[in-house]
Simulated assay, not measured.
Amino acid sequence: MDTRIEEQPNVFGTSLSLSVNGQPMQVTVDPSVRLVDILRETLFMTGTKISCGIGRCGACSVMMDGKLVNSCLVMAYQAQGTSITTIEGVGEEALDPVQTAFLEEGGFQCGYCTPGMIMAVKALLKENPNPTDEEIAEGLSGNICRCTGYSGIIRSVRKAIDAQ
């Protein structure tokens, strides 16, 4: 039995233009729809995860105009004209050094937080290519992992720093 609910046309839709992973996109959505929902449900980019939905866990982290944001807190109208990078845009041709480090150092277990963690590490290393342990902890403070205990994640960050 098909339990999907067919989406009704949105009579309050607004045309939204933005760039996602370097590709120009135009979608018609309600202006108050969350960016995470646009990415996952409209553009079918499911690498960005939804967990808390209130900006506390970091699973939905993406880069908006080069800055790390929680996409569950960004409304469609706020994304108009912006450039978004999702986990799908990281390492499109080959694995990014941060992704490789997470694989090699066991920086994930279930993998649910991993896309947001990788985006946070990318943002951290963009701002500070050689962070101290305190700066790494601060850079990852907006991302929660319930599985790893963080030691593998910290090893992954250190390995990514060395790989630069």
Score class of each variant (00 low, 15 high):
residue 13 G to N: 05
residue 107 G to C: 14
residue 11 V to R: 01
residue 55 G to E: 03
residue 104 E to H: 13
residue 51 S to F: 13
residue 29 V to R: 12
residue 70 N to T: 11
residue 40 R to F: 09
residue 63 M to Y: 10
residue 35 L to K: 00
residue 111 G to C: 05
residue 99 Q to N: 00
residue 8 Q to A: 15
residue 51 S to N: 08
residue 67 K to F: 10
residue 144 I to C: 04
residue 17 S to F: 07
residue 2 D to N: 13
residue 41 E to I: 05
residue 24 P to Q: 03
residue 8 Q to F: 08
residue 145 C to E: 02
residue 135 E to W: 13
residue 71 S to Q: 04
residue 140 L to T: 08
residue 24 P to V: 00
residue 73 L to Q: 08
residue 146 R to K: 10
residue 105 E to V: 07
residue 33 V to T: 11
residue 121 V to L: 14
residue 16 L to I: 13
residue 53 G to P: 08
residue 75 M to D: 02
residue 82 T to D: 00
residue 133 D to S: 07
residue 159 K to P: 00
residue 15 S to K: 09
residue 36 V to M: 00
residue 128 N to C: 13
residue 76 A to D: 11
residue 129 P to K: 13
residue 118 I to Q: 11
residue 160 A to H: 06
residue 14 T to D: 04
residue 33 V to Q: 09
residue 87 I to E: 03
residue 146 R to P: 04
residue 57 C to N: 07
residue 18 L to K: 03
residue 31 P to E: 02
residue 140 L to A: 06
residue 79 A to W: 00
residue 73 L to N: 10
residue 112 Y to L: 15
residue 146 R to T: 11
residue 51 S to W: 14
residue 99 Q to P: 07
residue 27 V to Y: 02
residue 107 G to S: 09
residue 14 T to L: 06
residue 112 Y to V: 11
residue 133 D to I: 10
residue 5 I to Y: 02
residue 140 L to E: 07
residue 78 Q to F: 08
residue 61 S to Y: 12
residue 117 M to S: 00
residue 65 D to H: 10
residue 70 N to H: 15
residue 158 R to N: 06
residue 133 D to H: 00
residue 160 A to N: 05
residue 81 G to V: 10
residue 17 S to L: 06
residue 155 R to A: 15
residue 39 L to Q: 04
residue 19 S to W: 13
residue 97 P to Y: 05
residue 140 L to Q: 05
residue 27 V to A: 07
residue 85 T to Q: 14
residue 67 K to Y: 06
residue 101 A to T: 11
residue 122 K to Y: 10
residue 43 L to H: 02
residue 48 T to W: 01
residue 60 C to R: 05
residue 32 S to K: 15
residue 43 L to M: 09
residue 115 P to H: 08
residue 34 R to W: 01
residue 15 S to N: 02
residue 132 T to F: 09
residue 79 A to P: 06
residue 95 L to D: 08
residue 116 G to W: 11
residue 117 M to W: 01
residue 119 M to A: 12
residue 17 S to V: 02
residue 160 A to M: 10
residue 125 L to S: 05
residue 148 T to W: 12
residue 26 Q to I: 10
residue 102 F to C: 05
residue 147 C to A: 11
residue 25 M to S: 06
residue 110 C to D: 07
residue 135 E to G: 02
residue 1 M to K: 04
residue 20 V to T: 00
residue 147 C to M: 11
residue 115 P to L: 08
residue 53 G to R: 07
residue 83 S to E: 15
residue 68 L to A: 12
residue 96 D to W: 01
residue 17 S to N: 13
residue 113 C to K: 10
residue 125 L to W: 11
residue 34 R to P: 03
residue 100 T to I: 15
residue 86 T to E: 03
residue 32 S to E: 12
residue 153 I to Y: 04
residue 30 D to T: 03
residue 12 F to T: 14
